[in-house]
């Protein structure tokens, strides 16, 4: 029966709004690292993309991460690729894909952080604005 499913699903010409919602801190569990891989793969499908950091997820993009003494992989530089994808989408006139990289204001402030603390440029949205963006989504993936 495995052979029956070697094909891929029909995705041609469909553009949806995808949100990747990050609520967990990095390193204590793998979710932050593996959802990053999800976002990178999805970029190839040219879907509208909203990457959201809220609750402890805001710690994922904190500057100055140094994992050397833990022996773990520092994946924070890879967030720079998100920003590049966003900039590419904005600059490329042939591609009308919309990217958002969002930090929820309440989560950021509760943790004593400001936008200057992050490794990438973010849009800061309060809960009401984020709620509106969330309501526009077709697919929300989380880890």
């Amino acid at each position: 029966m495995e052979d029956e499913f070697q094909g891929t699903l029909e995705t041609e010409g469909v553009r949806k709004n995808f949100m990747f919602l990050n609520r967990k801190a990095p390193y204590g569990s793998i979710y932050a690292q593996e959802i990053q891989e999800m976002v990178l793969i999805s970029a190839a499908f040219e879907q509208n993309t909203a990457v959201v950091f809220m609750d402890d997820g805001v710690y994922q993009i904190k500057k100055g991460q140094d994992t050397s003494a833990t022996g773990m992989k520092n994946f924070s530089p890879t967030y720079g690729i998100f920003q590049m994808e966003k900039e590419d989408a904005e600059e490329d006139e042939d591609v009308d894909v919309v990217w958002h990289i969002v930090v929820e204001k309440e989560s950021m402030e509760a943790r004593g952080l400001t936008p200057e603390d992050f490794v990438i440029d973010v849009e800061v949205m309060d809960a009401a604005e984020l709620q509106k963006l969330m309501a526009e989504q077709d697919v929300i993936l989380t880890g």
Binding site: L21, R23, K24, Y31, M134, A135, Q137, D138, V139, I140, T142, G143
Partner: peptide, 8 residues
């Protein structure tokens, strides 16, 4: 509902 959001 058109969209499901799992609060994990």
């Amino acid at each position: 509902h058109e969209t499901s959001q799992a609060w994990l």
